[in-house]
Structures are given as structure tokens and as C-alpha cells.
């Protein structure tokens, strides 16, 4: 359904493998490459597939179960495919007090996602609530993929989304 649904290439192509090995010189263990390797997989495929887990385990000399155990601890790694544009909205107290719930409602409405965590029928968006994004003076901060956007209001949501076809 989404662009990233099926991993079509291995994570560690020649280029990414070279990047991984360059990083390896920084750490005394290969295990320490786990978070960077998981980021590479997610950037390549949009999520971390069972195939990617196998691949990472082999590269880092770990077991797939260990890799899975670590990756599920961290909330930013996706264990299933998500919309082409992944939206994270802060709703922790400082943002909540200043109107974040209205922004969530506007986002769910305009994206067509309907529910938090659900992907819109066209595969374009997924919206989730997250805890404090460290930008509490700029209510409401949201992340669309890697773009950090401050001071979003229900009124600005439509224009903002138009930039993410």
C-alpha cells in the first residue's frame, strides 16, 4: 500500500555497508552500531522489516531476537509499514495546556487518518501522539518525517499538509 511496504533492496548495499564500517571505527564493540544500523534500515525502507532485522543481526554478530528486543524499546523505530509521511504531534502538558488537542483533531481530519496510529486510505499519512518534543514554547510542535515544524495551529494544518504530497 505504501511506497515502503516491501523492502526491495538489502539495507547494507555497498554504500551503506561502507558507512556502517566507517562508523565502526568509533566504537570498541560492533554491538554499539545497533542504533545507527537501525536508523539506516528505517531510512532505507521506511520501517524495520524482519528481513532487515536478520541482516543487521548478521552484520553486527548479534541474534535477531536480541535486535528485536532492543529495537522495540525505542519508540521511533517502526516495526510495521507506516504512511509515506509520518506525523508526530506533541500532546504533553505544556502543549496540551496551549491547544495541542485541537491540532491533533485537525490533523486527523485533514489527513483522512481518522484514528491515531492509523494510516490514511491513500497511504499518504500516519499521525501519532508523542511525548514532549523539547520545543514547548512553540506550541504545537510536530515532526513530519524528519522536518521539525513549530507553532502549528488548526488553521495552518491544511497548508502544511499540502507540502507533503
Amino acid at each position: 500500500m505504501t511506497e515502503h511496504a516491501t523492502p526491495t533492496e538489502p539495507v547494507f548495499t555497498t554504500e551503506r555497508k561502507a558507512r556502517l564500517e566507517a562508523l565502526a571505527t568509533r566504537y570498541p564493540t560492533r554491538q554499539a552500531l545497533l542504533l545507527p544500523a537501525l536508523w539506516m534500515a528505517q531510512q532505507a525502507h521506511g520501517w524495520i522489516s524482519p528481513e532487515a532485522i536478520e541482516e543487521i543481526a548478521t552484520e553486527l554478530e548479534l541474534t535477531p531476537a536480541y535486535v528485536r528486543g532492543v529495537l522495540t524499546f525505542y519508540t521511533m523505530y517502526h516495526t510495521h509499514p507506516v504512511g509515506r509521511h509520518f506525523i508526530q504531534v506533541c500532546t504533553t502538558s505544556p502543549c496540551n495546556m496551549c491547544g495541542a488537542e485541537d491540532v491533533v483533531a485537525a490533523l486527523l481530519d485533514h489527513t483522512g487518518c481518522g484514528d491515531l496510529g492509523a494510516t490514511s486510505p491513500d497511504g499518504r499519512f500516519t499521525v501519532i501522539e508523542v511525548e514532549c518534543l523539547g520545543a514547548c514554547a512553540f506550541v504545537t510542535p510536530i515532526l513530519i518525517n524528519d522536518d521539525f515544524i513549530e507553532s502549528v495551529t488548526p488553521d495552518t494544518v491544511a497548508d502544511l499538509l499540502a507540502r507533503y504530497p
Binding site: R26, T29, A32, L33, L35, P36, V70, Y74, M76, V130
Partner: peptide, 29 residues
């Protein structure tokens, strides 16, 4: 003097000092 940036992946608890070290080591935080 080497300085390396290591990205976290979402988990408030990794701000706790020893959890942060575990995260760098490739473990659960």
C-alpha cells in the same frame, strides 16, 4: 580529541546517565 554524535531513537529514560550509556552500547535503555 574525538567527538562523535550518537542519535537516540525516542525514549525519555535514555536521559538517565546509565540508560544513556546502555543506549550507546546498543542495548535497551
Amino acid at each position: 580529541i574525538d567527538i562523535f554524535v550518537h542519535r537516540g531513537a525516542g525514549a525519555y529514560i535514555c536521559g538517565e546517565e546509565t540508560a544513556l550509556m546502555n543506549a550507546i552500547e546498543g542495548k535497551r535503555g
